[in-house]
């Protein structure tokens, strides 16, 4: 387990030092939100639209930022060294942790910007929203990491990642949109408990599956 933390720490500190991924991501978020602002302006939209848009921005920022952990290893040729020092489970957990922190950070920024920029976006049931936020981020991080591992082995960058990840991430996104909608109108958690249940089971299932499957992807 400690090894997983070391791998996470290595990625985290190199990211803090160089900030390749971080800068690109933050710019991406700013640009997309600005585009939406210009497009919609001060017009009021329904809850559905706000909820949908926010998670769309989240999805695309995840697509632009989360493949870096594996692709950079492949590019720099450090794969072999990595597989020598650590057990595959630890490698995956380390990368997963990194992506998790990254996505929490970015999504918090997105959520805050969203709340301040769009007056129509108000959340009444914060418990619901925050719980969904946490569970959803875990789900997004899990799937994005494992798909990133897969495409790192394929040599086509960029476009393949969203194509592969979208169907896998869709359950999370859909549930998050539903729960956000209900949180906006102030419904209690019990009304969306089936959605939460799906989110929780998704996290558990995908995390387990990723851990089992990563070994096969990683060995060459």
């Amino acid at each position: 387990m400690k090894k997983a933390y070391y791998i996470f720490h290595k990625d985290f500190s190199s990211e803090l030092r160089m900030r390749f991924a971080l800068n690109a991501l933050i710019m991406f978020v700013v640009v997309s939100l600005s585009t939406i602002l210009f497009a919609i302006g001060s017009e009021k939209a329904t809850e559905n639209v706000y909820a949908g848009m926010m998670w769309v921005v989240v999805f695309f920022s995840a697509m632009s930022g989360l493949s870096r952990t594996f692709v950079s290893e492949e590019e720099r040729g450090t794969n072999l060294i990595l597989s020598l020092i650590a057990h595959p489970v630890n490698i995956f957990l380390g990368k997963f942790l990194f992506n998790l922190v990254l996505i929490f950070f970015i999504n918090t920024i997105i959520a805050i910007l969203y709340l301040t920029l769009f007056s129509g976006f108000v959340i009444q049931n914060w418990y619901s929203f925050i719980l969904a936020f946490v569970l959803g981020n875990i789900g997004i991080a899990t799937s994005s990491t494992i798909i990133a591992a897969i495409i790192a082995k394929a040599n086509v960058k960029g476009t393949l990642y969203p194509v592969l990840a979208f169907p896998i991430l869709l359950p999370v996104i859909l549930m998050l949109i539903e729960i956000t909608k209900s949180a906006m109108v102030g419904e209690s958690i019990s009304e969306v408990q089936s959605e939460f249940f799906v989110l929780l089971s998704y996290d558990v299932v995908m995390l387990t599956a990723s851990l089992m499957v990563f070994d096969i992807i990683w060995k060459d």
Binding site: I150, A154, I168, S210
Partner: peptide, 30 residues
Amino acid sequence: GAYFALRSALDNEEKRARLSAIYSILAFLT
């Protein structure tokens, strides 16, 4: 579509078979 896109991006037949099998498992879970 994603399955075939993945396959077309991989030349090595062992890698292609392995990775598309894994992707099919992950996608099936959803």
